[in-house]
Structure formats: C-alpha cells, structure tokens
Write a protein that binds this DNA or RNA. Structure first.
Length: 742
RNA sequence: GGGCGAUUAGCUCAGUUGGUAGAGCAAUCCGUUUACACCGGAAAGGUCGCAGGUUCGAGUCCUGCAUCGCCCACCA
C-alpha cells in the first residue's frame, strides 16, 4: 500500500500536484480528450462559459461558490462522455477598474488621471489589470476548476475587440445604434454617463418644499430640489383637474431667485392630482420624467446644472455654486420673499452610481444609444416565434428567447423578473466618458455646418484627413454581452462556434440578470439568431454565518484562499454546495467548512482500510455475492441513481448531501463495519464476496464523489490497484439509459 | 405603488408529483479490542409563522394575515 495513505489526508501537500497532473494531461481541453480517446469525436457537446471575474481585485467566496457549482457540472458531463468545454476569462470591467486605479493613483502619488494623460494612465490600468488577472487565474486553479486554459479570453483583448467592432457595425448599419441628445444619468463623481441598471437607489430623508415661483403665479408646486426650478419651463397639471383648468395653455414669465424663468401651464395625464398640490414644476433638462412631459408638449429644455453638479446659470448669487448650496440659497430666497408655503420631511429614493457612489444628476447630453424598440429585419433566426427574414425588434427578440422554455431559467421565478425588466426597458445608453474600455468605433470630421459633423463608422479608421476618433468608450456590458460567442471565435465561423453554441448552461448570480444575462440574450439573438444558452442557473449570495452580507467594513469576509489553505479545496467546495439551493442566498461559517474537511479525511481512511483488507482482490473478477453484499450494492445503486438525477436536474446540494451521507453513514458505518467479522472469521466464499463488495463500492464511490471533491478522490484513485489513468476521465458510474450502473 | 422570496429541532437547512416529520452542526450520555477521536454508539429535541379552506389525509395545494428580507417603478 502507498505510504501516503498511512498518514491523515493532507490537502496542502496534495492539491497543487494533482492540479498540475490534470493540466499536463491536457484533458480539460475536449479536443485533446478526443485525441487521446477518452471522448468520442461525435459525442454530445456540453459547453459553459465562466462568468468572467472583474480584473478589479481578487476572487471572493461568491466566486468560489460559482466555480464549485460549475466544476461539478463540467466534471459530471466529462465523465458522462460528453465533449465538455468550459471557457475561462476575465472582464475588463471598465468603470469599476478605472475608478479603482484612479483611487490608488490619488492615494499613492496624489495624482489624477489627467496629470498622466490618456496613454500613460491606460498603461497603469493595464498593468493593474494584468496583476489582478494573474491572481485570479491562480485562484481559479486553487479551487480545482477543470477549465480549458488554452481557450482563455479577456473582454478587452484583440479578438474580443474585433467582435465588439463587428457587433457595433452591424447594429449601426441596422440603425439600432444611434446618437441622440437626451437626458441621461450623469455621474458627477465618475464624470460619465451610466445606464439605468447601474443606478442604485438609496433611501434618504429629504425636505419637500411647497411654494410659488412668484407672487403673481397662480399655482403652488412642490419639490425636493428647489435649485433645479430655475430650469423649469412648464407646470404640468392633470387634464381633469378642475382647480387648474383655467390656466392651461397660459404662459408666465418672472424672476426666480435672480434668474429669468418662463413657464407654460400644460395638461398631462402622468400628473397625480392627489400628490402635493397636484401641480408639477417641469424641469425638462434635469429629470427623465419631465423630459418625457417636455417631449409630449414640445417644451424647451434649459440646462441649469453642469457636469460637475454646479449651477450653470447667469444669476450671480447662484452661478458656479454646488447644487446643495444653491438649494439653501433658493430656499432662503423663497422664505424672504414670502413664497415658501410649506416644508416637510419625507422619505425619498435618491439615485446613486453603483460604482462610485456619486449622486446621479440627470442632464441632457449627446450620447450613443441602442434602440430596443426599433423594427429591423432579422436575416437568420432559430428563435421560435421569430422567423428568418421577419421584421422584429430587440425587445421582441429578448422576449421570444425566453418564451416556450427556449431558455430555461432556474429557479423559474426569475422568468417573471426578466419579463418585467423588458417591459420597463428604455434605450440603452452605451457610451461612457471614461478611458478604459473599447473605444467607440466612430470618427467625426467637421463640415461647413458646425452643428452636424460628418460621422463615420467602420471596422477601422476612415481614409483621408481631418477625422477624429470618438473619445468615448463602450459600456463594459456591451462586450460581455457577446461573451458566449466572442469566446468561441465569432464573427469567424469557427468549428468551436458551430459545436459549442448555444452553450448548454449559464451559471451566474441572480444579481446580474439584467446587466449580463439579458444583454447576452439581446446580443446573441440579434447577431446569431440563436439563444446564447439553453439553461440559466442562478446561484445566490454567500452570506456570513449570521446572514449578513460579507464586506470589508464589517470584517466578516471569509477568504476562499485562507479556507483552502486551512481545510483544503474539497472541503471549501462541499461547504459551498451543500445547503445551497438555486436562487437562494446561503450562509457559510468556518465550522461548516471544517465539517467537510473531516469528510475528506473519512474518505481517505475508508480507502486505507478497504485497500488493506482487499490486497488480493480485483474489481474485474466478480465473485458470487452473498445476499447481504448484493443488498449493499443495491442500496448503493439507488444512491447513484438518485444523485445522477439530482445532478441532471441541477440539484447539486441534494446530490452532494446524499453522497456524503451514503458514504459516511451507510458505506463506512454499516457496510464496512459489518464486513470486518466476515473478513476476519468468515468462510472463503463469503470473505471474497465481502472484499469484492468493499472494493467495488469504494471504486465507484470515488467516481461519484469526484465532481464534488476532485482532489482527494483523484489522489486516492492514483493509489488504487490497476488504475493508471486519471479519475477525471473515468466513466460516471450510473447510466440512465441502461437503468443500472455502468 | 407593484412583484418575489423566506418563516420546519438551539443554529444551518432538506423534505423533488399531498400519505404517520429528516440531516449536519451544537448540546447530553456511553465507548478508545486491530481505517479514522478529523471516530463509533445511544438517547434527547419540532402543535412545520398565524387563521381559515380543499381532501379520507396538508410542512406540501388554495385564500387571508403577520414578521423578516430582496427586486422593480419617472410620485414631483
């Protein structure tokens, strides 16, 4: 017997060596697996992309959980003989990464990005991204992920940039991408636009002021932002509101805190008669709602707040003041003028930027958008409900893709969430005023009409002089939206693309259903005419033992690397799987991880015992079995049958628990204990039967446990008699088609 | 305002199509004779949030309510 087995299991001495063995075998790559004869060349494909971690730092326990779940699916599929491909990669995460580097730069050198200039700053970001990337890769390996490194991708590498430019051009040519002067979400802190989905609402106390613009003005209005009122161009009332009917259509001009203001009274259905005074001061430039009213009534738009969240007006007392200061000044002015009628404290949802925390300042800007409602002709479609050559829209495509279970979502309650998002979906603002990211493939050249320069879109810069490249970059989710097929070589018609797309399953957190999952569906259905994946499996958040979100400030972070160092990756994996259903948050404590370390050791010890008791036994030579042993095997087979169907139905938490329970409390505590007396005292035939049974169940258990605990099972496998190949490419021990263990 | 989820043993959670409640951890007791103390055995622990209803039978289905949590929404 191997001497290593005589000591307790030591994951630290084992795991790196095992991973190296796997990598060197090349068998994470399905092409090599076929070459070496472990996979049939025409076997059913199974493919999955790794949700690319952001290169903003290191992996957290949530990533570890994701890797564990995905690796279980991947290893199971591989053992089932499928052409199994798992593609790794990282995400440049434009805003997140850039703002991280900006912070570091400010902290360490006291510099801003403009002190360095675009090129120099980008070099710094890329250096940072490279370091993060290297850390992330080593962490993914530590978890035991059987992922094909030969196909690794990055959302900002050359191939993906080519895909991005191709996608942009297709959409531009179809007029789905357009440039428009619209009220957008401006993040004054990050100095960029952001999309609706990047807004986080924070509840705060705010003061609701009720006042009149001037003594002669007939209607009182309420607002929490008096400073924006210098930009009002209308007051909107409900058409059926008898109180104000007589004023509709009239126009009033007055001086408001030193600024000349003209408002028109308009009637609009969207106004709530019962809120406040039932009259709404319309500020078209600084509110998305008001911009809508302004559009309906053809009202002028007056920008009064700058990109730095400062007042941009002529009035001397306000000009250049921060919005908060301007608010005070105006409230004070209203008070002295006797115009303020009421102020009361209310709860308000304030919009902040997800990445920088800056308070969103809606303002009008010329930006690039994707039109989600515009009709176009789709040349090719395999989406049911959308035929090739038909006229459709991106919204319709996104809806159709999830209808009829073409994309199955687990748990299915997220289907509703997805649809309601689509129902409320506005055009997607895709341009960002940051430096790190895919540069927008648009060039401008001035013409005699200064307001309308010549615009060019192409794969490369246009010929001729005088062209300037658009300064902006694309929303990071534009490139991640292409991920399922840009990683497979698209827009080239590669064999990978043909074989592995649509991908079999997408496994990711429910928190990025809109950001990422929906955008992948948009891009894939539009560009390929097919769904990006057949199944979406949403995992939940990993919380601490008390159910609190893990965060640096709370100091309750469980670092997966620390845990792996302490308890081994197998234990970490199992602790993240068991008790964790799809779509539900789970709680993790160090005790739980410890418990599964004990399990790894239990397997180890059971293997030692079985091997020491069965030295002349071969699984290939099955003796006549005693009834007791036959029954033990039947029980084991039932377990395999159950766990197989659990895995196929994405119930990994059940499969893991059943295997754990079977191995420990049935195999080790009962089968193995009872075999002792037979082997020590029984007759030759019953001894042989018991020995064979032990070795058989151990052998098959290692296979079944392998997707969950790849390291310890592979290590024991290497010590089993007559095994010269890797456990990771052994056949899964239960075959549904035959209805019995294979 | 709309939607969703959770509520089962002290803690964490199972309970897949309705058939007399389960596991792990913790706590209690016993045990170290030849795989493992990172162990084994035993016992203990729940009116399955509340109130109705459907059913021969409900933790499981329906209705209402409560508490906690999450998501969405342009109520100024």
């Amino acid at each position: 017997m191997n001497e290593k087995l005589l000591k307790p299991y030591n994951p630290q001495e084992t795991e790196d060596a095992i991973y190296k063995k796997w990598e060197e075998s090349g068998l994470f790559n399905p092409d090599i697996s076929i070459q070496k004869g472990f996979t049939d060349a025409d076997a059913e494909p199974f493919s999955i992309v790794l949700p690319p971690p952001n290169v903003t730092g290191t992996l957290h326990i949530g990533h570890a959980s994701m890797l564990a779940i995905e690796d279980i699916m991947v290893r199971y599929s591989r053992m089932k003989g499928k052409r199994t491909l798992w593609i790794p990669g990282t995400d440049h995460a434009a805003i997140a990464t850039q703002s991280k580097v900006e912070k570091d730069l400010e902290k360490s050198e006291g510099k801003r990005k403009h002190d360095l200039g675009r090129d120099e700053f980008l070099k710094r970001v890329e250096q940072f991204a490279q370091n993060s990337h290297d850390t992330i890769v080593s962490q993914i390996k530590k978890m035991g992920s059987s992922i094909d490194w030969s196909r690794e991708a990055y959302t900002l590498d050359k191939e993906r940039n080519f895909a991005v430019r191709t996608a942009f051009k297709r959409m531009y040519d179809d007029k789905l991408i357009y440039r428009g002067f619209k009220v957008i979400n401006w993040d004054p802190k990050g100095q960029t636009t952001i999309s609706d989905d990047e807004i986080v609402y924070v509840e705060r106390k705010a003061k609701l002021y009720t006042f009149k613009y001037s003594k002669d003005f007939p209607i009182s209005i309420s607002t929490t932002r008096p400073e924006t009122k210098v930009g009002d161009t209308a007051v909107a009332v409900h058409p059926s509101d008898e109180r104000y009917k007589q004023y509709v259509g009239k126009e009033y001009s007055f001086d408001f805190a030193g600024e000349p203001v003209t408002v028109k009274i308009v009637a609009d259905e969207s106004v709530d008669k019962d809120f406040g005074t039932g009259a709404l001061g319309v500020t078209p430039a600084h509110s998305l709602v008001d911009a809508g009213i302004a559009e309906r009534h053809n009202l002028p738009m007056k920008q009064v707040i700058s990109e730095f969240a400062k007042m941009n007006v002529e009035a001397k007392n306000l000009k250049g003041k921060k919005v908060a200061e301007a608010r005070e000044i105006i409230v004070e002015w209203l008070r002295t003028e006797g115009l303020l009628e009421d102020e009361k404290e209310i709860d308000q949802n304030i919009a902040t930027a997800e990445r920088t925390g800056g308070i969103i300042e809606p303002l009008p800007k010329l930006q690039w958008f994707i039109d989600v409602n515009k009709k176009f002709t789709i040349p090719h479609s395999e989406i049911s409900g959308i035929s090739s050559g038909s006229v459709t829209s991106l919204k319709e495509l996104m809806r159709a893709a999830v209808a009829d279970n073409q994309i199955k979502i687990i748990p299915d309650r997220f289907v509703k969430v997805y649809y309601s998002w689509i129902d409320n979906l506005h055009d997607w603002c895709i341009s960002r005023q940051i430096w790190f990211g895919h540069r927008i493939p648009i060039w401008y050249r001035s013409t005699s009409d200064t307001a309308h320069p010549e615009v060019y879109n192409g794969m490369e810069a246009p010929e001729g002089n005088g062209w300037t490249h658009d300064e902006d970059t694309l929303d990071t989710w534009f490139s991640s939206g292409l991920w399922t097929f840009s990683t497979l070589g698209w827009p080239n018609k590669t064999k990978d693309l043909e074989t592995y797309h649509p991908t079999t399953v997408l496994e990711t957190g429910y928190d990025i259903i809109f950001f990422w999952v929906a955008r992948m569906i948009l891009m894939s259905t539009y560009l390929l005419g097919e769904v990006p994946f057949k199944t979406v499996y949403f995992h939940g958040l990993v919380r601490d033992a008390k159910g609190a979100k893990m965060s640096k400030s709370l100091g309750n972070i469980i670092d997966p690397l620390d845990m792996i160092a302490k308890y081994g990756a197998d234990a970490v994996r199992l602790s993240l799987i068991i008790g964790t259903g799809p779509g539900n948050d789970s709680k993790l404590s160090e005790d739980k991880i410890k418990a599964y370390k004990h399990f790894a050791n239990k397997i180890w010890n059971a293997a030692r015992f079985v091997l020491s008791m069965t030295e002349n036994t071969s699984v290939a030579e099955k003796p006549d079995l005693a009834e007791k042993d036959a029954e033990a095997i039947r029980v084991f087979q039932d377990t395999l049958k159950d766990t197989s169907s659990d895995i196929e139905s994405y119930r990994f938490y059940l499969a893991g628990e059943k295997l754990y329970h079977y191995f420990w409390h049935t195999f080790a505590d009962i089968v193995l204990e009872e075999s002792k007396s037979t082997i020590y005292n029984g007759d030759e035939a019953s001894k042989k039967s018991a020995q064979w049974t032990l070795l058989h169940i151990l052998t098959e258990s290692l296979k079944a446990l392998h997707p969950f605990m790849p390291f310890v099972t592979e290590e024991i496998w290497s010590m089993m008699p007559g095994t010269d190949t890797l456990l990771m490419v052994e056949k899964w021990p239960f075959d549904k088609a035959q209805g019995e263990p294979s």
